[in-house]
Design a protein around this nucleic acid. Structure first.
Lengths: 233, 233
DNA sequence: CGCGGCTTTGATGTTCATCAAGTAAAGTGG
DNA sequence: CCACTTTACTTGATGAACATCAAAGCCGCG
């Protein structure tokens, strides 16, 4: 029988999900798990899934940044959420539906880890601790999406853009200077406004010295004002 | 030891969730489960939970109709979803968060069934089949909310109202004549528009002979037109 | 180097929220 | 049970917010 280093059983030395998965595994489960997982690399712009694809695996993001979105009848995209490292790329629907309800594509070069859906179901069925851990993680994810959707909906254009910039600065980059991982159009698709108005709003923020813009590089110069706009607008 | 009728172990003769819960239970789990569940009755308008309440139980709707909503800083409500019989009143967040993220109140007289959150976690941990069943059900629920939120977001006022009326007619009442379970204001809170525009839109539908309105009684007279408005607008 | 996509700004018009004002319906207390 | 109060519903007028249309500069890439 092979030896498995329990501290790094799959060679996923940097995967934060190890805690969710591995803490709850018995030795034999772990072995099977590691044999069957697959990693895929996606260049910026590439698709991870297309809406309508058959659901074969349960997937999460190891590194990079992806967007989950739907292409509407008129050809325009609607972005559901943006997922960062260790976020799930498959949402809960994965367990019940046979086809991907939306598309996923890479905003930055990304590595996605896939676990066979049947295997996950098998493990859930036979390992309660794993189930509980997974459910907690998935719950947090779904909740965040619903939460955020409501937050954006209630704001006007200025509030939407302010909210989005603050989210990037605080949650994703933890820095008041950062490079936008998305185009103006994508901000529009995420916030439900037009590209022109995203640009206009950002230009106004720039003129009012609230942010500094250099292409995709953004510096938040007046955090308080941006906060006020996000909370009021 | 007490005898339990496996076909009706908790006296919940009409509960569709029996399949999720009971099929996967061992005898001793079932017994403990039935001892600990609690049912509460809520009159139309009453709260089931208030946002901010401590999460003590995992709850689902046995009968009636409820709305999940948040009260914003300006005092206005934002309706997240409307849940019917056998829908979950607690979403997935229940597993990770200690306080209710939103309020739940009854749109019609409702009966809610509560299961102690610690007990649910215990069962999830020790019964894999139950976990899998529960996860599938919860996944469907979260998915539906996210889905619907996107559907409403992309429509204009006419489309939103048409979509909402069709949803009630098709999914909830399965009849082209029905009584609105919500006020005009609540339709506004759900669709993200103003009360006046909900009324105006409905009046226009009436004038164009698409619907007939008698107070809260609605008859969809021209399903095709309403469908077109919902899909185009 | 030129093509296509991204960005930017301005002009214009539509949609929708807000304000106002009145009627109808539904609770509430004497 | 009736006067009173409040809430729900309705319509119209107005203006602000936002989408659409148009045009031009910029940049990266084949």
């Amino acid at each position: 029988m092979e030896r498995i280093d329990m501290n790094n059983p799959c060679g996923c030395e940097k995967c934060e999900l190890r805690s969710v998965f591995f803490e709850s595994f018995r030795g034999d489960e772990l072995e099977s798990f590691c044999r069957n997982k697959q990693e895929t690399f996606h260049h910026r712009g590439d698709f991870v899934f297309h809406a309508g694809d058959e659901v074969k695996s349960f997937s999460y993001l190891k590194s990079g940044l992806v967007k989950l979105f739907k292409t509407m009848a008129n050809g325009k995209d609607q972005i559901i959420t943006i997922a960062g490292p260790f976020d799930f790329v498959s949402l809960l629907g994965t367990f019940t539906i046979s086809h991907q309800p939306y598309s996923v594509s890479a905003l930055e070069d990304s590595v996605v880890c896939h676990i066979d859906i049947q295997q996950i179901k098998h493990i859930v069925k036979h390992n309660g601790l794993f189930s509980l851990n997974l459910m907690e993680r998935l719950g947090t994810t779904s909740n965040k999406i619903i939460q955020e959707s409501m937050e954006i909906r209630k704001r006007n254009t200025h509030g939407k853009v302010a909210y989005f910039l603050l989210k990037l600065s605080r949650d994703l980059y933890m820095n008041q200077t950062f490079n936008l991982p998305v185009s103006r159009r994508e901000i529009a698709e995420y916030t439900g406004m037009t590209t022109e108005n995203v640009i206009r709003t950002m230009s106004e923020f720039r003129k009012e010295k609230i942010i500094r813009i250099n292409g995709r590089e953004i510096e938040i110069m007046d955090m308080e004002s941006l906060d006020r706009i996000s909370n009021f607008g």
